[in-house]
Design a protein around this nucleic acid. Structure first.
Lengths: 240, 240, 240, 240
DNA sequence: TATGAATGAGTCTTCATTCAT
DNA sequence: CATGAATGAAGACTCATTCAT
């Protein structure tokens, strides 16, 4: 009896694995809307077998996500164990980008906090957050990462990197951009300031550098914050 | 009479606008898979009316995208006309991020070149690319942007920023990250180097700094690239 | 006022004609399921105008049919007025076949008595029947048509001819068949007898000529009705 | 998994049969435009089940047609095996008329060669043609059928017979007409000649017998081909 | 037990008909 | 008054889920 059950269990586990792998592939190829029948077909099992292992399609997708998160967690733990903090942190982020972009649409889960209602993912997600936070804080203590970013920042930025890498079909070029982005987390990077349009009457600003301007009492509208910018604009006009 | 497209009557134009707006809203709320009936319901019209104005759901989505692109183009042209090159360029990117993230899933279109087979979008997309390229090149000539990025890079990075902003539900924090990312386009930012795992047998590297290592003939595995890194790791272990 | 109304009437009549003609064309091209909008498009009017002239699509189709019937009636009356009875009768049938097959699916109406519920057609149909019956009876009195056929027979046969002509894409060949068929209405053509399968136990018949057979009391099954047929079958077997 | 076709399980085969039968019935009752849902309802299954067995409505109709053709083929082969050539040939035609008219609109398929684009029917159609041609040629060799008809002629004529039988709601009367028509295929039947209208200026002909007339140099229009016809017309006028 | 057949609600799309312009 | 835009009830088809084999 025991042996028979054990045999069944092995069989079931094998099927479960095949379904999970097929689902991950199918989702990467065709998006999250891939029909369940397609997943079953790729796994070489019947639709009923998929339902034997996962109570709904939703649950299957969550299992795929959880599996992905576990891969990331494992990667983070390896990085933490074997590298200096800063190296481990950035290496982990690159791992996330790499693994997530390869898996297509699955990457969303890394950041999605509220979009999946079921609590199945909670455990994996929590551990993932802990690993990320630990690596981040260690790197910050080591001085390799700006102190004013929190784990949410990092997560959002990483999601952006996955998007960047996916958008840039030229893979080396994409990676270059990812590195560019991640370097923004290192200390001492200046921050671009957003500026309103110059002609916005509610917020006049220098036409050259965008500095906010205060209207003169004379009423004549001013265009530049000072002679420096006026001169610079003049030179540009000459250069045409 | 297969799907005659509506003409220019006042009520028809009004309905067309309502449908477009409702579609943009619905897509932002529920994704590109939003049922057409939901769009019709939001617009307060019948399903048939949607089809009178757009011959298929696909065409409706494309029209929404094209409209979005045209908004971006207009924004870019305003920036180009009224700002110094570098200001205009970064302002345009922030506009894109701003407008696209508000519109949810529509942002994909900014980067998607080949994913939409129909040529409806071609014209808008082309002009968008031209505007972006012009702003980029002007900013590069002005010395405000690294010379080694091309329009594709910028587009991919911008897509990443949209993703970042969407992922970070805290809006000011998200904008901070976006600025961080865009600053990577300014000159003189160093690039993070990706490194393989230290224990990868095919590519051993220093456990502290990641520098590639060459195995010694003695066979004893080495862990650090030199005494400096060994000492640094030691101090970290003491602190840990 | 009167002039204005007269002008309107002329205009309306013109539109009514255009719609009728467009409907006939469209039905010939695309079948009875042609969308009403397509008819309006071909007529160069709006859908509303079609409804101004015909209260429903059904009514429009019936008007087309009635028009077709009136064409046939006119043809029949010309034949009756100008030809000898037998000539007139067969000429009329050929006219029906000709006109109906040219008009595609409309031909059904010639025979359809009960399929169209509305009484709009009744008047035209009645007159058509009268014309046909008059021509038939005259031809029968003249000895040119078998006396044992009635108008229903003729109508059914004519419908068959339309079908034959439509089925045979080679037009001259189709006409040859039509003539072949119509000649069956002339006097003295023998009638093919339908026969059950020889091996049908309920109705044994001669394997050569199909004559019904009576089982012999001996029980040995018989195959031929007599020596003549047996010999004929034998010769055929030799000829192989 | 787009419309996986059902396999060979007992229940699946049973359902497939029920769907086919229901489709044939429904098509006979309501025409080819019968809603698929109606077919499903008659078969006592869900709409999805119909799609499991037939990938589209089109495919279902084709399957019904193919089934019909196969019935006809079987009938033709039985006729060929058990009857003398001429008997077999006419018996086959009567079988076709019988089976097709019972099945309503399906009869079209017998003649339709090019109207169904998909090649599903090709095999059945080809065999049907072969059976028909074989029977025809054998009957022609046996002297029972005019040598100047080809299989296309026969097919077109048979389609006409189906139409005739359908049009004549009185079944025995309809069969009488069918026999009348088919006898036209037997040797030595004269062919009705079509004649233009007498008053057609381009083709003047005798008002009594239709023979073409040549205008006299005197210019006075002539009405009859000779004194015989003139006298005959005179007598008719007296009788009229 | 695993399979895959059956289900039926939901989606896109068409089109006869009505009605505002 | 003619136009053509709006309507909404079907219809074909898909697919997550259940259940018989």
């Amino acid at each position: 009896m025991t042996t028979a059950i054990a045999g069944d269990r092995a069989d079931a586990r094998r099927n479960r694995e095949r379904v999970l792998a097929a689902a991950a592939d199918a989702m990467a190829d065709q998006g999250l809307d891939v029909p369940l029948g397609e997943i079953a077909r790729r796994a070489g099992v019947g639709a009923g077998t998929v339902y034997r292992h996962f109570p709904s399609k939703q649950a299957l997708l969550e299992a795929v996500f959880a599996r992905h998160l576990e891969d990331l967690i494992a990667s983070g733990e390896r990085r933490a164990a074997r590298y200096a903090p800063t190296e481990a942190f950035f290496g982990f982020l690159l791992d996330i980008v790499e693994l997530s972009s390869r898996r297509g649409h699955i990457c969303d889960v890394v950041t999605a906090d509220t979009s999946w209602p079921r609590p199945v993912l909670t455990a994996s997600r929590l551990r993932f957050r802990q690993v990320l936070a630990a690596l981040l804080h260690a790197a910050q203590r080591a001085g390799g990462v700006r102190p004013d970013v929190d784990p949410e920042d990092v997560l959002a930025l990483t999601a952006g990197c996955v998007s960047t890498l996916t958008a840039r079909h030229d893979r080396p070029a994409g990676l270059k951009l990812v590195h560019l982005t991640l370097d923004g987390l290192r200390p001492c990077t200046p921050v671009t300031k957003a500026r309103p349009f110059r002609d916005d009457p509610q917020a006049p600003c220098c036409a050259e550098c965008g500095t906010g301007l205060t209207a003169r009492p004379t009423g004549r509208p001013i265009r530049y914050c000072g002679p420096t910018c006026r001169q610079r604009a003049h030179r540009r006009r000459l250069a045409g």
